[in-house]
Design a protein around this nucleic acid. Structure first.
Length: 786
DNA sequence: AGCACGCCGACT
DNA sequence: GTCGGCGTGCTC
């Protein structure tokens, strides 16, 4: 018997191994396998992707599997096929995809460690490289070879290290990086025997009753380790280690069937629960009860014995949301997201494998969970960019979910008040069925939105008179206001008013942002911190810290209204989760009058007293100037203004310089269909996605001198590449230098999925050889192209 | 990716 | 002679 194994390597190849007699478990597709690999046969973890009776590969070269450590598969056959699609579509290898999703606690790798044994090296002849290695090892214990190599940057590193080992100065030892699967030890009764000693007798009797008990439980019941060991030694019981999962706390259950559905909610419920497969869009404004509907649909599938996966954006997976889902499904829910610890991830993965949990709620990383009898995937806030992975494999979890539904034959439900332009386009083409919730469940009307043109308005700094008046009235009534700004420290660069000098990051060449709390200039690309310069180094004029960030807004509000209690909610203040949770709690309790915040403040939280939302400069909500700017402005306005008056009537003031932008105009007038129509028209004319499939290629150079060679090679391939893509120029990225590396990008567009797939296949075949000496990234259907 | 090996020019 | 810098082939 042979197995085909995918390893965590950027190679198209899989590897064949022979399965010998001495493996712990039967080979099976999707199981982990430990195999020797490479010149020194280090052990690595792989995934079995196929079973074979015969191999074409010369049999004498086929190595034998070291072990198959589990009696369960960590991937299902279906998800391995799905991983192949991800690999083909998003330009990665099968192994890279599988090991991206598999919690790293499942991985076992073997490597060498070296340590110095001969401290007195003065008498031995040594080359400079060898000396460098010894210096690095001095005063240290064993050091991983890979770590040492990375630190030293010597070209003949391995040769020099070998010389040192031959000279007897350094020793080498293999070691295994252990998996971190939580394990528990159990005693299993083998044969009953009468033992001496009261405690031993008691333990044997207890084992006779229970058969199998964990060592932890025995200890809790007052059996000492000595007694336990004795019973094992006498042959009464065996000790086994088992991989375990950790449970959730039980919660009070709320019965979903009590909720009465409106006619359109009912229609949506019927459509999804009666479908065998297909993609749906649950579409409805704030307050139309989207969540109640999809939870009820989920409940229906669980009642039928199916499992359900609910995907949410990164920022939405708050304790609040979890509590809400738990109130419906109790402790039967599992959580999976990137910020769990290794052990928690492994534990959650095992729960899925064993079917211990029927409902999983998670972020994009959860989309490949090996859920048995999966009957439904819900993608909440489907337009959210956090569904797109920003490293290899650059997959979009919404797309993977849709593919998974098609492959495993179950419905996929996208949910949004402001669908992505992409999804809306597919609704128009009939690929996705729209289920619109027309009635609002909430008795509170949608907030009244007023647009203020900053060019006409009388204003104090960035605050229009209208906004200031509304702010004052709101706080006077004892209610809260949220002032929304796009980014922390936006434009808060140090700027010379006489010569125009702007302090920039020496590595990334972007303007530095002044952070008052730290009294430092910070680069928002690489994070490097600088001492602030107060006088222009060129003309020694006093510098201004210009522009608006959350900090400056907070400060100016405090000056304008010294009696208001102001709180700032942005990346800086909620970086520490416990501080963030405390601030949120305090806001809900009404401890603050004004909240100054970024996107973070608007996602996933309901502030009951919040009745006024002010958007300071709506024109800037698009962030980076790319073809999706309008879409982001539209979504930001709708989401932010929707925060006002969730429980009592509220209002929103949208300040902007250009009130005629379709994204602004249609958002504030609640004319959603008009926005999508006009935006799709623009995209169509300019030939942007969704009318084609975009691919962003980015090259990174250590030295600018390498550009000539890169350009040459790129030009050489361009002809062939143009068979699949319309290829954009190789241009320096708008932020040309990141962490000391120069970035060059080309944006390419393929006509459709079919062409894209063959184009990516060609890239996979060609790029690794052609651009071997270059660092490059290939981001298929990127969410940002700068 | 990570490693081996081989070739070159530039230093002791 | 080494050393450091590439380009290239291979991993079951």
């Amino acid at each position: 018997m042979f197995v085909e194994v995918a390893l965590d390597l950027p190679l198209e190849k899989t590897f064949v191994y022979k399965v010998g007699d001495y493996v712990s478990h039967e080979p099976e597709v999707g199981k982990r396998v430990i195999v020797p690999f490479g010149s020194n046969d280090f052990l690595r973890t792989g995934i079995i992707v196929d079973l074979k009776e015969k191999v074409e590969f010369p049999e004498e070269k086929v190595k034998e599997v070291f072990d198959i450590p589990d009696d369960f598969a960590v991937f299902m056959e279906n998800t391995i096929a799905l991983a192949k699609w991800i690999a083909d579509y998003y330009c990665a290898s099968l192994g890279e995809v599988l090991f991206f999703f598999l919690p790293s606690g499942f991985e076992i790798t073997e490597s060498f460690r070296v340590s110095l044994i001969e401290e007195n090296v003065s008498k031995i002849k040594l080359s400079p490289s060898e000396r460098k290695i010894i210096e690095a090892l001095q005063g240290r214990g064993a050091c991983k070879v890979s770590v040492l190599k990375r630190r030293l940057k010597i070209s003949n590193f391995y040769q020099s290290l070998k010389n040192l080992i031959n000279k007897g100065v350094v020793v080498r030892e293999e070691f295994i990086e252990k998996d971190s699967i939580p394990k528990k030890r159990f005693l299993i009764l083998k044969e009953s025997k009468a033992l001496r000693g009261a405690k031993s007798k008691e333990l044997v009797e207890f084992l006779e009753r229970r058969g199998k008990v964990s060592v932890d439980e025995l200890k809790e019941r007052g059996f000492s380790l000595a007694v336990i060991n004795r019973v094992v030694k006498e042959g009464v019981a065996d000790v086994v280690e088992e991989k375990v999962t950790v449970g959730n706390r039980p919660q009070e259950l709320k019965d979903l069937r009590e909720i009465e559905l409106t006619p359109s909610q009912k229609k949506a419920f019927e459509a999804v629960t009666s479908a065998e497969s297909g993609t749906f869009l649950l579409y409805g404004v704030t307050g139309s009860g989207k969540m109640e509907v999809y939870l009820k649909i989920a409940k229906e599938f669980v009642d039928r014995g199916k499992s359900v996966l609910i995907l949410v954006p990164e920022l939405l997976l708050t304790p609040e949301l979890r509590a809400r889902v738990e109130s419906y499904f109790g402790n039967r829910i599992g959580i999976f997201h990137g910020k769990l610890t290794q052990r928690e991830k492994v534990s959650a993965w095992l729960k899925a494998v064993r079917g211990e949990v029927k409902i999983f709620i998670g972020t994009r990383a959860a989309v490949m969970l090996p859920l048995k009898d999966l009957g439904l995937i819900v993608v909440d806030e489907e337009q959210d960019d956090s569904y797109k992975e920003q490293q290899k494999p650059y997959f979009h979890a919404r797309e993977v979910a849709i593919k998974r539904g098609k492959r495993e034959k179950f419905p996929v439900l996208l949910v949004s008040a402001t669908p992505s332009v992409d999804t809306y386009y597919r609704v128009q083409k009939g690929e996705i069925e729209k289920l619109e919730l027309k009635e609002r469940v909430s008795t509170v009307p949608l907030p009244f939105i007023k647009v203020v043109n900053l060019q006409d308005s009388k204003r104090t700094n960035i605050f229009s008179k209208e906004l200031l008046t509304a702010l004052e009235n709101t706080v006077k009534k004892g209610e809260q206001a949220l002032l929304f700004i796009n980014r922390r420290g936006f434009f808060a660069q140090s700027f010379c008013p006489s010569c125009g000098f702007i302090a920039e990051c020496e590595d990334c060449a972007v303007p530095l942002v002044y952070h008052r709390s730290e009294k430092k200039l910070i680069c928002h690309i690489c994070g490097k911190r600088y001492k602030p310069v107060y006088r222009c180094p060129k003309c020694s004029t006093r510098l201004e810290f210009k522009g608006y960030g959350t900090e400056r807004v907070e400060e100016e509000i405090k000056i304008l209204f010294p009696e208001f209690k102001v709180v700032r909610l942005d990346q800086d203040t909620v970086k520490n989760p416990s501080v963030g949770a405390r601030l949120i709690k305090e806001i809900k309790e009404g401890k603050y009058d004004v909240i100054v915040g970024t996107q973070i403040a608007t996602k996933g939280h309901n502030f009951p007293k919040l009745t006024l939302v002010g958007i300071l400069i709506a024109d800037l909500l698009g962030g980076a100037p790319d073809y999706r700017g309008a879409e982001r402005i539209f979504q930001s306005i709708v989401h932010t203004t929707g925060r006002a008056g969730r429980f009592k009537p509220g209002a929103a003031i949208v300040q902007c310089f250009n009130p005629d932008l379709p994204a602004i105009k249609f958002a504030v007038e609640y004319r959603f269909e008009d926005f999508y129509r006009e935006e799709l028209e623009t995209r169509s004319i300019l030939n942007y996605p969704p009318f084609n499939k975009g691919v962003l290629v980015e090259f990174q150079l250590d030295k600018l001198s390498g550009f000539k060679k890169l350009e040459e090679k790129f030009r050489l391939l361009k002809g062939e590449l143009s068979k699949y893509f319309s290829v954009g120029e190789l241009i320096p990225a708008p932020i040309p230098k990141v962490s000391g590396r120069y970035r060059f990008t080309s944006f390419m567009r393929a006509l459709n999925e079919e062409v894209l797939l063959s184009g990516i296949m060609w890239i996979k075949k060609t790029f690794p050889d052609t651009f071997r000496s270059f660092r490059y990234k290939i981001d298929v259907e990127p969410v940002r192209i700068i």
